[in-house]
């Protein structure tokens, strides 16, 4: 069964802006799904409609088979939402925020408190339970929103930019937490600007731009579409001009650094053989940009109609 099915979803705001122009999306149960797009592409509107914060103009949304139009209550019970902006009462205590959210789902106080403790502990916030939420750091506030979204134990967790403004160590621990949740069977949909995050965590991906889905496929197939990969090579000795290498585009960035575009049809072995023949010794090598980032930029710039594969 699909965790989320969206059919021909449209949204036109009161000011006439067409944020969604008929998108179709399918997310399977247990998936770890990335929804990417530039600012203003329609990601947050899509999440807003799914989480009932935005009224749609047309189309259908169903969550685990429950229609948002006709089985709203059942559909909403399946979702936990972690929004982009902090949206809890800044004056309430951490523990009260989580317990109150459980109450909104009809969970009796004793069970709500039990679950609040469980998730606050898992997210490293138990020691802060009696603090007013406004006193937490940015990373803690974000974890609080995750605990709040999980307290009614939804099957589908939607996270809108969950690691924005979070330091690297915390981001890694949040990735581990989300991976563990997904391993336990929770379906996760993620929007992020950190494409490394999407590439590391997600199995399937949709790219949205100008209110339409421009790509919707699995991560492996998407990365397979990358025609050229760019590498930065650090040389052992300084050079004055870039080497001429058949089949590769080479730019001399500085005396000891080369930037090389390697087509998918050529192997790295061929590159190193060619460099060795011209007496270039390479000390280290790295990707110029994240692979997904290269694809993302290309797709969004071209806004090509993507092949709908799932």
């Amino acid at each position: 069964m699909s965790a989320l099915t969206i059919r021909n979803l449209t949204k036109t705001y009161a000011n006439g802006v067409r944020a969604l122009k008929g998108i179709d999306l399918n997310v399977e149960r247990g998936d770890f799904f990335a929804l990417l797009g530039p600012n203003g592409a329609g990601k947050s509107t899509t999440i807003g409609v799914i989480s009932s914060l935005v009224n749609k103009s047309g189309g259908d949304v169903s969550i685990f088979g429950y229609s948002l139009d006709t089985e709203r209550s059942l559909a909403k019970k399946q979702i936990g939402v972690v929004p982009q902006e902090f949206n809890f009462n800044q004056f309430e205590k951490v523990f009260d925020i989580v317990v109150t959210q459980a109450g909104f789902y009809g969970i009796p106080a004793p069970l709500a408190k039990e679950r609040a403790e469980k998730y606050l502990r898992q997210l490293g916030l138990w020691e802060k339970r009696d603090k007013a939420s406004r006193t937490l750091s940015g990373g803690m506030k974000r974890r609080l929103m995750i605990a709040r979204a999980l307290v009614h134990e939804p099957e589908l967790l939607i996270l809108d930019e969950p690691t924005a403004g979070v330091d690297i160590e915390l981001r890694r621990s949040m990735w581990d937490f989300l991976t563990r949740l997904n391993g336990e069977g929770k379906t996760i949909i993620l929007t992020t600007h950190y494409l490394e995050e999407a590439e590391s965590l997600c199995r399937n991906i949709a790219i949205i731009d100008h209110g339409t889905i421009v790509e919707n496929t699995d991560m492996r197939s998407l990365l397979g579409k990358l025609q050229v990969e760019t590498f930065i090579l650090d040389l052992a000795r300084p050079v004055t001009e870039s080497p001429r290498l058949e089949g590769f585009e080479v730019t001399l960035k500085d005396a000891k650094t080369l930037e090389v575009e390697v087509p998918k049809t050529r192997s790295l072995n061929a590159l190193f053989v060619a460099l060795a023949e011209q007496d270039f010794e390479v000390m280290s090598m790295r990707n110029k940009a994240n692979r997904l980032e290269e694809l993302f930029v290309r797709l969004v710039e071209q806004n090509l109609p993507g092949e709908q594969t799932s």
Binding site: S51, S52, L53, R72, S73, L74, K76, K77, I79, V81, P83, E85, F86, N87, F88, N89, Q90, T100, Q101, F104, Y105, G106, R148, H152
Partner: peptide
């Protein structure tokens, strides 16, 4: 109004509460 202003109204709107 504070609930609206701080966006914590969203806590209620995402829930199944009628």
């Amino acid at each position: 109004f504070s609930t609206k202003f701080q966006h914590s109204i969203e806590e209620m709107l995402v829930s199944p509460m009628p």
